[in-house]
Design a protein around this nucleic acid. Structure first.
Lengths: 109, 109
DNA sequence: GCCGCTACTCAGCTTTACTAGGTACCGGTA
DNA sequence: TACCGGTACCTAGTAAAGCTGAGTAGCGGC
């Protein structure tokens, strides 16, 4: 990926992670691995952990500590009601953006 | 608009402005006004000017100073070849992002 | 003579992602 | 036993891009 994606991710990555958590609970390491599989090849681990801490502090997710067979205990995150609201708001904003961009793309040629 | 759009605009606003310039030349004040009409209600003026200076310094646009009837002279920007390349690259990155997000949205319910 | 619109500029702040480390637990192998 | 690789998390410092808020300046109309 290029630097361009990096900048575009600002404000979007949080929505992506919340969207992942809306499907099922997950922990940081897992989310990072999943993102890499999906083509977000160079998202730094630290970025995901920092983001998770941020959304936790804002009360958008619940956390449970679950022991792992191989390594330190996992911090499993799940979306709560507030997080679900926030995610909906994210999708609305995202739709707004994509609509404008689609129009621009057509109009611009 | 909310703070959410603000963060999402990072990395995207530049593409939006380049896309506008791909259709026709324009100057800062005009671009700001146009963005506001399109629903980007609280994009700060300073933001647009700063962005224009940035893309100019990176050689993506050409600049011409044109006297105005009512106010200081306008700096009219137009997309050059490099800018056009950059814009194409932007659209590719944008498509990549929207594809992932669309999938997530469906999958997440 | 001043108000409002046009038009651009600048310094300082915030947010979010990156870099580049580090801690720690486990199993397998030399 | 000693180490390595995979799992799992955390932190401090940096950079980029947008915002806030203020300032400069020309023009026309009441």
């Amino acid at each position: 990926m290029g630097k361009q994606v990096t900048e575009m991710l600002k404000g979007v990555l949080e929505g992506i992670v919340l969207a992942i958590l809306s499907g099922r609970s997950a922990y940081g390491y897992e989310i990072t691995a999943w993102l890499r599989e999906q083509g977000f090849s160079d998202i730094a681990e630290g970025t995901v952990y920092a983001l998770l801490i941020r959304v936790e502090q804002r009360g958008l997710v619940d956390v449970a500590k679950v022991p792992s067979e191989k390594g330190p205990p996992r911090k499993v995150y799940s979306l709560n009601a507030r997080g679900r609201d926030h995610l909906e708001e994210f999708w609305r904003t995202w739709s707004f953006l994509t609509e404008r961009l689609d129009k621009l793309r057509e109009g611009g040629k």
